[in-house]
Write a protein that binds this DNA or RNA. Structure first.
Lengths: 253, 253
DNA sequence: AATCCATATTTGTATGATAATTCGGCCACA
DNA sequence: TGTGGCCGAATTATCATACAAATATGGATT
């Protein structure tokens, strides 16, 4: 613990289970995403962070480098570190997305996600129908089978995620893959109420099967339609949402 | 320069003009994106990098943290740093995209980009028509005016980029903003031949104007159609491409 | 053959020192 | 009065060294 002077130390208990520099990055990242430090603001300097967290400068700098690499910060000599404008944030980075979700209204989150999903997933399904390799088709099929075995319930979330990610991979376009993280986050967190709140749980499996079949026989149009249909169902599920929203809101640092 | 033993030092001249740790990150990043180190491969350890680049461990570690934050690496004690699977790479990160382009076939790059643009940009235009604020509309308009003033030619690239980015911002969906980087890269690099190779340069301005007008009067359907039309033009422009492709291919490390 | 343990390797963290950059004010000069 | 350059201070950038922590690996033990 390098620089002198005392200061309020901040608890990092919330981010336990990883390296110290990673905990710092998480803590600072959360603060940026939650608006404690707005775009354009100058952050405390390295010595300050050392005091705040009781960590060495080496560690602090590694945390700052991590955030810089994610587009949240930019450091300049004699100035310090300044928060970058939102357009530069790598929101589809796994960490950044998690920090974002922790301080965002879940309703807004799902609205934004569904908006994008309805744009992309039908086209992803269409591309998958055309571009899929046999191996990729097998991955999609296996995920679907696992989903069917699990029926509805907590166990069906993982295969569901795998299904959508396998579909995404089968589209075979690098610039679409970053969305996997968003889809994963959405499906995982959505479960809390889809399971209890789904007005038509019986349609869950058949709708997925519709996509699978279309992709299998290479029918892009049908795949697109099936994917959109599933998403429309999801929209309806989310409709009865606000009551449970609060539970998803995680604490900040 | 910390650890002992001599080794082949690597030139970083190519990445001049920035911090040392940034140069290292660029050099290593390029090597990963170009396949020198494939997913799953173990990289040289920190001491090795120190010897290779003649830098201190502190600096090497900051470079590694940068790459880790972009999803290219993961470090574990006693193991070293392993290249992550491609799905985890933040391809829409500005740096990662640049490294990717440096080692990718430009033809493939434009194909992939256009595929995604044709999915997203029409919907972005449609959303912008609905969600734009007056301020955002002004930004789009100003970019368009600058584009018109510049006519075709090198000077029209910057306003063209601004136009598309302003449109993107006006869609008002956080999860779409990461594509700004891709659009920017595509438009910027595409210019080398659109200017000389555009079969219908006269349509360039009117097509953009079509989008602007539709967005201005809040007509989502028209905006979607206009955006798609522009992209179809771009496709045709790219068609006469391969002859000049080589020029875009940048050297690797 | 299976289990446990010591050891070596590699990353993780701390400390202190020096270099490089550059903002902002001061001063000389026109 | 303005303008340009110089200087000092604040902050990040880099280096060197030391020790801590984690863990894969092989060898000892049962």
């Amino acid at each position: 613990m390098n620089p002198g002077k005392s200061s309020h130390k901040v608890s990092l208990a919330k981010f336990a289970g990883s390296n110290l520099h990673r905990k710092l990055a998480q803590s600072i990242g959360n603060q940026i995403l939650s608006g404690v430090y707005a775009p354009g603001a100058i952050l405390p300097n390295e010595a300050d962070w050392c005091r705040i967290y009781g960590a060495s400068r080496t560690t602090v700098r590694e945390a700052v480098k991590t955030l810089t690499a994610k587009g949240l910060l930019k450091s300049r000599t004699k100035i310090g570190s300044r928060v970058e404008p939102r357009e530069n944030w790598n929101i589809l980075d796994r960490d950044v997305l998690a920090w974002h979700m922790a301080s965002m209204n879940p309703q807004e989150f799902f609205n934004s996600v569904q908006e994008v999903r309805k744009i992309l997933e039908p086209e992803i399904a269409a591309l998958a129908a055309i571009n899929r390799t046999p191996q990729q088709l097998r991955a999609i099929t296996e995920a679907f089978e696992d989903m069917r075995k699990a029926k509805a319930g907590l166990n069906s979330v993982a295969p569901d995620v795998r299904f959508h990610l396998a579909l995404l991979a089968a589209a075979n376009n690098v610039f679409l893959t970053p969305f996997g993280i968003m889809i994963e986050a959405a499906l995982t967190n959505m479960f809390e109420f889809t399971s209890t709140n789904n007005p038509e749980p019986d349609m869950f499996i058949p709708k997925h099967e519709g996509i699978l079949k279309a992709v299998k026989r290479g029918n892009a149009r049908a795949a697109r339609k099936a994917a959109l249909s599933l998403l429309t169902d999801t929209d309806h599920t989310i409709a009865g949402f606000p009551a449970k929203a609060k539970k998803l809101k995680k604490a900040r640092d």
